[in-house]
Amino acid sequence: MATPATPSRILPKSNFHNANAATNTGVSIAPDAESKGASLAYQRNNDFEHPDHVIPPPDYTGFENLVIVCCHGIFHPDASSPDFPLYSPHDENNWYLADFQKSNPETGKPGEQETFLAHALAGIDALIGELSPDVPNRTLLVMSGGSTKPSLTPLSEARSYYHAALAHELAEGNRGGGRTYQLFSKGRILLEEHAADSFQNLLFSILLFRQTTGRYPKQIRVITHAFKARRFLDLHAPSIRWPSERIQVQGIDPVMSGAEREQTIRGEEKHGFAPWLQDQLGTGDFLASKRRNRGWDEQVAEQLAEGLEVSAKEVVKGTVPEHLPWESTVV
């Protein structure tokens, strides 16, 4: 199952009982009773275990908007390491990037890690307006991307983007993780850690929203490259019959010259849009093999659709039934 951004956080047990036990002989006498010569004693219960204090789960009542950040690389520094704040998300060396995503000193092309960080921060910006106590919380952010480089790291793209946003906060002087950690700890940022392509980014994020809130989103904003907008609006959303008036794309492209932009658009049409036009669910040999090369495990499909409608489960398995639950969502 996709991982929610707020794990169960258990507070430390109270030291009160342990401190008493260290000096106790097994019987304690109330001070006023002792002064009166009373023999009343309180026997210590050696089988008693102090219960854990668990923070209650977030309340997702009223949430209806979904923001999806599509992930494309992995920021790999260990977020649990004491030296994590020393690793900048702006440094290309701290990312696992494909060759075409790396900088090229000869042409002046910068590394695309700046674009990936911009995607993550744009997603967080979409939630900022709801941090005020006077504004209703209606929007969830899903960072979507699986463990696409298993030979290098088990870390998912989604979790690494969250780490990159945290590293950015620390670099800005927000020692507690700033707004990123605040939103994460409140369950406003969810991590979808299985998607291996853009179609799965959309579908799995929708399903995670449903599993988290109990309903499907009314409105979706996809944050990705601008040159991929047609892929989402004209192919992915229609392929699962997601209503066109309920999805938007916020496009942020890498820095490009005019020639590079034209080349990128041609490449998207040939290698991105065209294959999905022919195989809109990505179950054919070409797109399915790309998924497997990026770490996709088909056995995860059952887990992703756990507790959902039968029709939603069919979509995860690669077929689109006659009726889908999100088509009937009232806006």
Score class of each variant (00 low, 15 high):
His323Tyr: 05
Thr3Glu: 04
Asn18His: 06
Thr213Lys: 06
Gln43Asp: 06
Phe75Leu: 09
Val330Glu: 09
Val222Lys: 00
Glu262Met: 14
Glu130Thr: 02
Leu127Glu: 00
Val142Arg: 01
Ser8Val: 15
Gln248Met: 08
Arg230Phe: 08
Ala22Ser: 10
Gly282Met: 06
Arg138Ser: 11
Glu309Leu: 13
Tyr96Pro: 03
Asp91Phe: 12
Pro136Arg: 02
Ile68Phe: 12
Lys290Gly: 02
Gln248Phe: 05
Phe16Arg: 07
Val54Asn: 04
Thr212Arg: 05
Leu202His: 01
Pro133Trp: 03
Glu260His: 03
Asn174Ser: 11
Leu233Pro: 10
Leu152Asn: 04
Thr61Met: 00
Asn45Phe: 11
Ala21Ser: 14
Ala196Gln: 01
Ala229Cys: 14
Gly282Asp: 03
Arg292Pro: 00
Asn174Asp: 09
Ile252Ala: 09
Leu155Gln: 13
Gln303Leu: 14
Ala237Ile: 10
Gly37Val: 14
Leu121Ala: 11
Ala98Met: 15
Pro89Asp: 00
Ser88Cys: 10
Val142Gln: 01
Glu327Leu: 14
Gln280His: 03
Asp99Phe: 05
Leu208Arg: 00
Phe16Met: 09
Val320Asn: 06
Leu191Asp: 01
Pro105Val: 14
Asp78Cys: 10
Gln248Val: 10
Asn93Met: 12
Gly73Gln: 00
Arg294Val: 07
Tyr42Asn: 07
Pro217Lys: 02
Val67Asn: 01
His194Thr: 10
His194Trp: 10
His76Arg: 01
Leu131Arg: 11
Glu92Lys: 08
Ser28Trp: 11
Tyr60Asn: 05
Met1Lys: 01
Tyr96Asn: 10
Val330Trp: 00
Gly146Trp: 04
Ile74Lys: 00
Leu207Asp: 04
Arg188Ile: 12
